[in-house]
Every structure is written in C-alpha cells, then in structure tokens.
Lab assay of single mutants.
Amino acid sequence: TFELKGKVGKVVKIAEDHYLVEVEGDKWIAYSDEKLSLGDRVMVVDVDGLKLKVKRIP
C-alpha cells in the first residue's frame, strides 16, 4: 500500500464520511481535508492502513 503514495486516481463515490477512489484499477476508501466531487482527479498523499489520504489535483 505504501507504493500508492504519489499515485493519481479519481473519486468514484461520495459517502457520508469518506470517499471511494479508484487508483490503478482498484477502489480504496479515502479521506481528504478538502471537499471533493465525483470525477475529481486526486493524488494519494498518505496511506493509513487500508485508507488513503488524498488531495485534489488539477
């Protein structure tokens, strides 16, 4: 999972307290300090167990 840091993915689902992002064909639970929208491109900035911390990228 640490090899996911720096990888780019996209938001595929928005849940009440987390996001579902697809990175390299796999779906992961993710969270972010900013509000994300469906389809946003994101970069993995940290890995916390099986959850990814992501940030939006242009």
Results as ranks from 00 to 15, higher is better:
I57D: 14
E34L: 08
K53F: 15
M43L: 08
K51H: 10
I57N: 04
R56L: 11
G39S: 12
L52V: 10
D40P: 01
E34T: 11
G25Q: 12
L36F: 05
K35T: 08
K35A: 08
E24M: 04
K7C: 05
F2H: 15
L20V: 08
H18E: 04
Y31R: 12
F2C: 15
V45Y: 15
K13Q: 13
D48P: 02
S32G: 11
V12T: 11
V23C: 04
Y31N: 11
Y31A: 14
E3N: 02
L36G: 02
M43K: 04
R41N: 07
V8R: 03
D17P: 14
V45P: 00
K5F: 15
A15N: 09
L4P: 15
K55S: 14
S37A: 09
V12R: 10
Y19R: 03
V21P: 00
G39N: 08
E34S: 07
A30H: 00
E24P: 01
L36R: 02
S32N: 08
D17K: 09
G9I: 01
E34W: 07
S37Y: 09
A30E: 00
G25H: 08
E3G: 01
V11M: 08
K35V: 10
M43E: 15
I57L: 05
K55C: 14
D46I: 02
G9W: 00
V44G: 01
Y31L: 11
V45Q: 05
P58N: 05
E22A: 07
Y19A: 11
D48G: 03
H18M: 12
F2I: 15
G49A: 10
G9F: 02
E34V: 10
R41P: 14
K27G: 08
E22K: 05
M43D: 07
P58E: 06
T1Y: 15
V54P: 00
T1A: 15
P58L: 05
E3M: 01
G25I: 07
L50R: 06
P58V: 03
V23Y: 00
W28S: 02
G9D: 00
V42I: 13
V12G: 07
P58W: 04
S37L: 13
D33K: 05
L20R: 04
K35C: 08
K13P: 02
G6V: 00
Y19V: 13
S37F: 07
V54D: 00
L4A: 03
D46M: 03
D26H: 13
S37R: 08
L4W: 02
A30F: 01
H18S: 12
L52C: 03
L38P: 07
E3D: 03
V21T: 10
L52S: 02
E24G: 04
K10E: 14
R41A: 11
Y31D: 14
K53W: 09
D17N: 10
P58D: 09
L36K: 01
D33F: 09
V12I: 09
D17S: 11
A30L: 01
K51I: 10
L4F: 01
V54W: 01
V8Y: 04
D17A: 12
K55H: 11
L38A: 10
L38C: 06
K13H: 04
D40A: 09
V21F: 04
D46L: 03
A15H: 06
W28G: 02
K27S: 09
H18R: 08
I29R: 12
D26F: 12
E16T: 12
R56C: 07
I29S: 13
G49L: 06
K55L: 14
K55R: 10
E24R: 01
V23M: 03
E16G: 11
E22D: 05
K51T: 10
D33H: 12
L4R: 01
G49C: 07
E24N: 02
E24L: 03
V42T: 07
V11N: 03
V8Q: 14
L38S: 05
G25M: 08
K7Q: 05
Y19Q: 07
T1Q: 15
P58G: 13
K5M: 15
S37M: 09
M43Y: 03
F2E: 15
L50S: 10
V45G: 05
V11F: 02
D33R: 06
K51R: 08
W28N: 02
E22H: 08
E16P: 04
D48C: 08
E3H: 03
V44F: 13
E22P: 01
L38M: 08
E3F: 03
V11R: 00
V54H: 00
G25T: 07
E16H: 11
V23G: 01
D26Y: 12
H18C: 09
D46E: 05
Y19M: 14
I29D: 13
F2L: 15
V11Q: 00
V45E: 15
L36M: 08
D46F: 02
V8L: 05
I14G: 06
E24Q: 03
G6R: 00
K55V: 14
I57S: 10
G6D: 08
E3Q: 02
I57V: 06
V54A: 02
W28E: 02
R41S: 14
F2A: 15
H18F: 10
G9Q: 00
A30Y: 00
D26K: 06
K35N: 09
V8T: 08
G6P: 00
V54K: 00
E22R: 05
V47Y: 05
L50K: 06
D46C: 03
E22S: 05
K51L: 14
S32V: 13
V11L: 07
E3I: 02
T1L: 15
V23P: 00
Y31E: 13
S37P: 06
K13L: 10
K35L: 10
V47P: 03
D48S: 07
K55M: 15
V23F: 02
V23W: 00
A15K: 07
S32W: 11
R41I: 13
G6S: 01
I14A: 12
V8I: 12
Y31K: 14
G6L: 01
E24H: 02
I29F: 10
S32M: 10
A15Q: 11
G6W: 02
V21C: 05
V23K: 00
R56D: 05
L4E: 15
D17L: 11
E22V: 06
K27F: 12
K51G: 13
K53H: 13
F2G: 15
G9E: 00
Y31W: 09
K35E: 11
V47H: 06
E22Y: 11
T1H: 15
I29M: 08
P58I: 04
I29A: 13
I57F: 06
A15M: 07
M43R: 03
V42L: 04
V8W: 04
G6F: 02
K13A: 04
E34G: 11
K7D: 02
V42F: 06
D46H: 03
L36D: 01
E24W: 01
T1I: 15
D48A: 05
K13Y: 06
V44M: 02
G6C: 03
E34Y: 06
V44I: 07
Y31M: 13
F2S: 15
V12A: 15
G9L: 02
L20K: 06
D17M: 12
E22Q: 13
G6E: 02
V45F: 07
W28I: 03
K7H: 04
R41H: 14
V47I: 07
K53G: 11
L50Q: 04
I29E: 14
D17E: 06
W28R: 02
I57G: 05
I14N: 11
K10T: 14
V44T: 02
L20N: 09
R56N: 11
A15Y: 11
E24A: 04
L20G: 06
K5T: 14
G39W: 11
V11D: 00
I14M: 12
A15P: 10
V8G: 04
D33Q: 07
K51F: 10
L36V: 11
L50M: 12
L38F: 08
K10I: 11
E16M: 10
K27D: 14
V42G: 03
P58Q: 06
G6Q: 01
V47G: 03
S32P: 11
V54L: 04
K53Y: 14
K13S: 09
Y31V: 11
D40Y: 06
S37I: 14
K13W: 11
G9N: 00
G49M: 13
E34F: 07
V11G: 00
S32E: 04
F2Y: 04
E22I: 05
K55T: 09
G39M: 08
K13T: 07
I29W: 08
S37H: 06
L4S: 02
K5D: 15
K27R: 11
